[in-house]
Simulated scan of single mutants.
Amino acid sequence: MRKLPLAIPALLLAALTACGPLPVKEATPVPTATPAATEQPTPTPTAAPTPAPDPSAGLDYEMLTLPTTPQPPHIYDSYFMARDDLETERSNGSTFVEALYTNDAEKMRSVLSDSLLESSLPLPDLTGLVITDVSMGGGVYEAPYATLTIADPGATGLPAGDHEFRFSFDEEGKVEEFYLQSGDLEDAVAQGMGLEPGAWEALGSLDVKDTFEDDVHLTTATRVVGRKLDALGWTVGEVRAFAMTERKVYDGHSNLTEYAMTSCEELPGDWPAPRDRYEWYTRPPEGNCLSEAQLQSVSDQLNTVFSQLREGTYTWEWEDDPDQAALHLWEASRPVPVAVTPDVLRSDEQVDFNPQCTRLWVPLPEGCWAVCTLAEDGSLDLFSGFSFALASPAAE
């Protein structure tokens, strides 16, 4: 986890009728004086709008320190690809994760699909990657996944902390994707955007509106995409956004039979890059629904929690291990504020939830906001931890 002009009608002028002129004595013509030219003021150039100040600019931040002692990988509930006909995928997926855990590039290559090996993009460099914990699951009723606790990304460019990666396999059961974001852009979508197929991945969406009529599905949205820097798309370079409308037609069995991008316009701006699929694009509130006294109270509460996170002493009701409690509460690849003040915080009412709640927004660098909710008594509700939102550039 953007005023309408008033139209004023013109006045109608009445036609004037004049009587014929009375005879008058001719007068001697008098020369008409030419009025002096009035000096026109020099137009003042219109100044460009001043960008809104970065609310994080005046704050200090520190990164969390994660333990670097690896734990034995384990398969969650023995549920990873738990079907007899998926034994090849299960083996290759497990070998792939083991290769990451041991930084074995050759072992990783041995289970990759030909499409990855023949890609024009390089494979990720595993040098220095430290993974301290692994869990794997899915593959029967949900997408197969591996959750990695990354203590040191090394040369991979991956974000630190707990992150869920999802697998896809080719027809031979080899690893075709192991993706942190939303996966590669489909070729038809990339071509509709004017992008090179295979070189871009989906990073997120904004202002999504779906319309269904019989078997026709129309989607209007802002799509954010990133150029892949490696074959698996673990890191992205250029980030771009497009306002687009897609039309999809399905048959009676929900199979896609027709696709068209009916409109597409690139949106300018410096779009931030998410660390994983759970960081969402949005427009942060511009003000506050909390009073000054309430903002001071939550500011004090936040500073206590942030101090505990940075010192490695934060625990909560269901987790007394400070390292695991910190990973539950915070995204380790994002810095923790040393201290916040009421003037940098924002708040709004979230009416889409049941029950309704108040959200608190804390500014972070790189256009990111850490978001949590408040309990009815005004205390921080940290049961689900913080979510992380990326601010879309202001519309021009």
Rank of each mutant, 00 (worst) to 15 (best):
V336H: 04
A243W: 12
P122C: 14
S333G: 05
T42C: 01
E177G: 01
D381T: 06
G93Y: 02
T132D: 01
P122G: 15
D187A: 08
L229W: 00
H217W: 13
R283L: 10
C289I: 07
D348M: 08
R227M: 14
C368A: 15
P73N: 04
P144E: 05
A48Y: 06
L360F: 05
G198Q: 09
F383Q: 14
M63A: 06
A27I: 09
E366H: 10
S91L: 14
D323L: 09
S384Y: 02
P355W: 08
P284N: 15
F169W: 08
E331K: 08
L345E: 09
D343S: 10
P335S: 01
P9C: 06
L218T: 03
S333V: 02
T32H: 03
M1H: 10
S384M: 04
P5L: 11
Q294F: 03
V340L: 01
V236F: 04
L123A: 10
G137D: 15
F386W: 05
A260D: 11
D276Q: 02
S182G: 11
S56N: 04
D114V: 04
Q40N: 02
T313P: 02
G385T: 05
E39Y: 03
F178T: 00
D207N: 13
V225F: 15
E26M: 04
T38R: 09
D320L: 11
I131W: 00
V24D: 06
M244E: 14
G237Y: 06
Q294Y: 14
P31K: 05
E311F: 08
E213Q: 10
G198E: 09
L126G: 00
P35I: 02
P274T: 07
K3Q: 11
L100C: 02
T219Y: 05
L327P: 06
V175I: 01
T147Q: 07
D84R: 08
R83H: 08
D214E: 05
L256M: 14
L203W: 12
V298I: 10
G93T: 07
A260K: 05
W234E: 01
G385Q: 05
F167E: 00
Y101G: 02
P72C: 12
V97Q: 07
D152Y: 05
I150H: 06
R227S: 10
E177P: 00
P31A: 13
E26C: 10
Q301T: 01
T127L: 03
V134P: 03
G226Y: 12
E118M: 10
C289M: 14
V30S: 08
F388Y: 13
L380N: 09
F306M: 07
D152E: 08
P49M: 07
D321E: 11
E331G: 12
T132L: 06
A339F: 02
I150F: 04
M244C: 07
F306R: 07
M63H: 12
V224P: 05
C289K: 11
D184G: 12
M136N: 09
A273E: 09
W369R: 00
Q40Y: 06
A389M: 13
D104M: 01
V225S: 14
W234H: 01
A48I: 07
D60V: 02
S205G: 11
D377S: 01
S119H: 14
M1D: 14
C357G: 13
G183D: 06
G58R: 09
T358S: 14
L112N: 03
E396D: 15
E265Q: 14
V175N: 03
T28R: 13
G204Y: 09
E177W: 00
E118K: 11
A326N: 11
P335T: 00
M63S: 12
A188P: 11
P153A: 07
A231S: 11
S379A: 04
